[in-house]
Computed example of a mutant assay.
Amino acid sequence: MTGTLQMSEQVLSIVTLICLIGIAVSVLLLLYRIIVGPTNPDRATALDALGINLMAIAAIMAIRLVTTKLNDVILLIGILLFIGTLAIAKYIEKGVIIDRDDD
Results as ranks from 00 to 15, higher is better:
Met1Gly: 15
Thr2Leu: 15
Gly3Lys: 10
Gln6Ser: 12
Gln6Phe: 13
Ser8Asn: 07
Glu9Tyr: 12
Gln10Glu: 15
Gln10His: 14
Gln10Val: 15
Gln10Phe: 13
Leu12Phe: 14
Ser13Phe: 04
Ile14Lys: 12
Val15Asn: 09
Ile18Phe: 05
Cys19His: 03
Cys19Glu: 02
Leu20His: 06
Leu20Thr: 07
Leu20Gln: 07
Ile21Asp: 05
Gly22Phe: 02
Gly22Ala: 04
Ala24Val: 07
Ser26Ile: 05
Val27Lys: 04
Leu29Gln: 13
Leu30Ser: 08
Tyr32Val: 04
Arg33Phe: 02
Ile35Trp: 11
Val36Tyr: 07
Val36Phe: 09
Val36Thr: 08
Val36Arg: 13
Pro38Lys: 06
Thr39Trp: 00
Asn40Trp: 09
Thr45Met: 13
Leu47Pro: 06
Asp48Phe: 14
Ala49Leu: 15
Ala49Asp: 03
Ala49Thr: 12
Gly51Glu: 08
Gly51Asp: 03
Ile52Phe: 11
Asn53Val: 00
Asn53Glu: 06
Leu54Arg: 00
Leu54Gly: 10
Ala56Gln: 01
Ala58Tyr: 00
Ile60Pro: 03
Leu65Lys: 08
Leu65Gln: 11
Val66Ala: 14
Lys69His: 11
Lys69Gln: 14
Leu70Thr: 06
Asn71Ala: 15
Asn71Ser: 15
Asp72Lys: 09
Asp72Asn: 13
Val73Pro: 08
Ile74Met: 00
Leu76Cys: 04
Ile79Gly: 12
Leu80Gln: 08
Leu80Val: 11
Leu81His: 10
Gly84Tyr: 01
Thr85Ala: 12
Leu86Val: 13
Leu86Asn: 07
Ile88Gly: 00
Ile88Met: 05
Ile88Thr: 03
Ala89Gln: 07
Lys90Ala: 05
Tyr91Asp: 09
Glu93His: 12
Lys94Gly: 01
Lys94Glu: 14
Gly95Tyr: 03
Gly95Leu: 04
Val96Ser: 07
Ile97Thr: 05
Ile97His: 05
Asp99Gly: 03
Arg100Pro: 10
Asp101His: 14
Asp101Val: 14
Asp102Met: 07
Asp102Glu: 11
Asp103Leu: 14
Asp103Cys: 04
Asp103Arg: 09
